[in-house]
């Protein structure tokens, strides 16, 4: 049989399970929200896991639409986490997933493309995820203060987020960790999954 390039029933199931793991990775990474300084690393930590899973999705389901389905469960998680932030997060993630699909196109066996697509894909953690704190720093910090976070901590946060080049650092570090994630993903693929005959 010709390898089918359209998503079929079984691909939706595989992507559904990996999508769940995607969300679990994100929830686990939110441990980073434990303190003001580490919050900034949340995106980077999550993108490491996402990078690993991204490689597995691309290799297991090398078809157009796999990344979009892979994003569904995190999208629902974003959506339920608040009205305005939720909708922007969910729409942003889907748009970037679509962009990743376009980068991958039909060449889903090239590791370079997969890495590039993964880096674009995880931009939702660094760009969209930190947009509120960098663009609306005062609003964000006032809200934090109003919710009862310690004044000194909030003023440290305010200082940190008003250094705008830091946003670039966040974006770059997230991209780097995504790169690391895809690298580890590739190792796991080669060393285990391919050898075990699963992919």
């Amino acid at each position: 049989m010709e390898p089918n390039t359209k998503m079929q029933g079984k691909d939706y199931i595989t992507c559904g399970i990996l999508s769940l793991m995607n969300m679990v990775g994100m929830i686990l990474s939110s441990v980073m929200n434990i303190s003001g300084y580490t919050t900034i690393l949340y995106g980077a930590a999550a993108s490491f896991f996402v990078g690993i899973l991204f490689v597995i999705v691309c290799c297991k389901v090398p078809k157009f639409g796999a990344i979009l389905v892979f994003t569904i469960v995190p999208c629902i998680y974003f959506f339920t986490s608040g009205l305005i932030e939720g909708i922007t997060g969910a729409v942003g993630a889907l748009l970037l997933a679509f962009a990743a699909e376009l980068i991958l196109k039909n060449k889903r066996d090239s590791m370079k493309r997969i890495t590039a697509a993964a880096i674009v894909y995880t931009l939702y953690m660094s760009v969209i995820g930190s947009a509120e704190s960098f663009l609306f720093t005062d609003y964000y910090c006032d809200a934090a203060l109003a919710h009862g976070i310690n004044e000194t901590v909030v003023s440290q946060m305010r200082d940190m987020y008003s250094v705008k080049p830091l946003w670039l650092v966040v974006i770059v570090s997230t991209a780097l960790l995504t790169f690391a994630g895809t690298y580890v993903g590739k190792l796991i693929m080669r060393k285990h999954l391919k050898k075990a005959g699963i992919i």
Binding site: T14, I17, M21, H192, L193
Partner: peptide
């Protein structure tokens, strides 16, 4: 990963 991917294959066979 191994067990999730295996289960996903088995689930897919049953679903299809």
């Amino acid at each position: 990963f191994v067990s999730s991917l295996k289960s996903s294959d088995e689930l897919a066979a049953a679903a299809v």
